[in-house]
């Protein structure tokens, strides 16, 4: 049993999200240290404001400004902040009903410890110093005692309206989109069959698996015969020579691929395999590649897979010998 392989797999992308008008007003408002809610037909103020009434599904657009102060409706103490979370030091997750709102906003509370947090406590927004029009413009919440208002750090505890005030929702230079980077780090496990195949490749042997039921040889192997749905365990070495069954000529340079165009991308049925695998054809001008061309793998010192396939010089295979593999 060869070593079971694993490898890191990072899925990372900065998603560009366009905003609807309500979202745009809310996030632009945060940039301007103004918190907006949206009024439903039955008069409730939802903060954060949604585009569509969660009860009736109708579109709602009437905005109202609420206070940057509010009350914790529930909380949870997070002793070990995770990547991407708003604070680096232990903090409380909180749902906060801002003064004037009928629903609660999820954010974080900067507090010295769980002993300092309770449901019903008063909190206020601590604005992020650099604001771009994003939910993170609220840096966090902080405890707020109206009787001991130190007015520090832009808390503006008492400035917002205590009762929601209608708001036009228009600002100069409105935010119309956000960029939301997201990175997740996975560990990829190709499985036992693929691990065996990859171990053989290290010795420059290409292996497949024969199905115990239909006897077909599949390359690369997957541990199961895809047509019979049974485990396939018999290892079979195939190739190294094979036949080009079909191909295309690539004239467009793929991002990150260091291959000069044009080049030929081909389906190659290795001798002894019952289906074709894919590879690049080299060692022959691209416009001379043809269906039926006999090829063999060319390995490089550092590559796990054949770098490309080149002509063997044998006569072309007759169409009838590979047409079932197209």
């Amino acid at each position: 049993m060869p070593e079971i392989l694993t490898a890191p797999l990072t899925v990372s992308f900065p998603f560009t999200r366009s905003l609807g008008p309500v979202q745009s007003a809310f996030l632009t408002g945060l940039r301007e240290r103004t918190v907006l809610g949206v009024r439903t037909r039955d008069g409730r103020i939802l903060v954060p404001p949604v585009e569509y009434d969660p009860v009736t599904a109708e579109e709602i657009r009437d905005l109202a400004e609420v206070a940057p102060t509010g009350t914790v409706t529930t909380w949870a103490w997070n002793p070990a902040p995770r990547p991407g979370q708003p604070l680096r030091t232990p903090f409380a997750w909180v749902l906060v009903r801002l003064d004037g709102a009928d629903t609660a906003l999820l954010h974080v509370l900067d507090a010295p410890g769980p002993h300092a947090v309770r449901t019903g406590m008063r909190v206020r927004i601590r604005w992020a110093p650099e604001r771009t029009g994003a939910i993170t413009d609220i840096g966090c919440f902080e405890p707020y005692d109206p009787h001991e208002d130190d007015g520090g750090d832009g808390g503006d505890g008492g400035d917002g309206p205590r009762t929601p005030a209608p708001h036009h929702g228009t600002f100069d230079d409105p935010v119309t989109g956000i960029v939301a980077p997201a990175r997740l780090d996975y560990t990829y496990t190709p499985g036992r069959a693929q691990s065996r195949h990859l171990a053989a490749l290290a010795g420059r042997r290409i292996t497949g698996e024969r199905c115990p039921s239909c006897s077909k040889v599949h390359v690369p192997p997957r541990g199961a015969c895809p047509t019979c749905g049974v485990a396939a365990t018999e290892q079979v070495e195939v190739g190294p020579r094979g036949t080009v069954t079909t191909f295309c000529i690539v004239n467009i340079k793929a991002k990150g691929a260091g291959i000069e165009v044009p080049y030929v991308y081909a389906h190659i049925a290795l001798d002894g395999a019952d289906l074709a695998l894919h590879g690049r054809i080299g060692g022959i001008p691209y416009d001379e590649v043809r269906m039926g061309l006999r090829v063999e793998p060319v390995w490089t010192a550092d590559g796990r897979h054949p770098d490309h396939y080149r002509p063997t010089g044998e006569p072309d295979a007759a169409y009838d010998t590979y047409k079932e593999l197209l």
């Binding site: 998603f15 999200r17 905003l19 979202q23 809310f26 996030l27 954060p48 529930t74 909380w75 949870a76 103490w77 997070n78 995770r82 990547p83 991407g84 979370q85 708003p86 997750w93 749902l95 906003l105 999820l106 954010h107 974080v108 994003a134 939910i135 993170t136 956000i178 939301a180 997201a182």
Partner: peptide
């Protein structure tokens, strides 16, 4: 994806709020 996901509130934290 606009108001919540950017804060990365993990599944245990949300269950803890509940």
């Amino acid at each position: 994806p606009y108001y919540v996901a950017p804060l990365w509130p993990d599944s245990v934290s949300l269950a803890a709020l509940q």
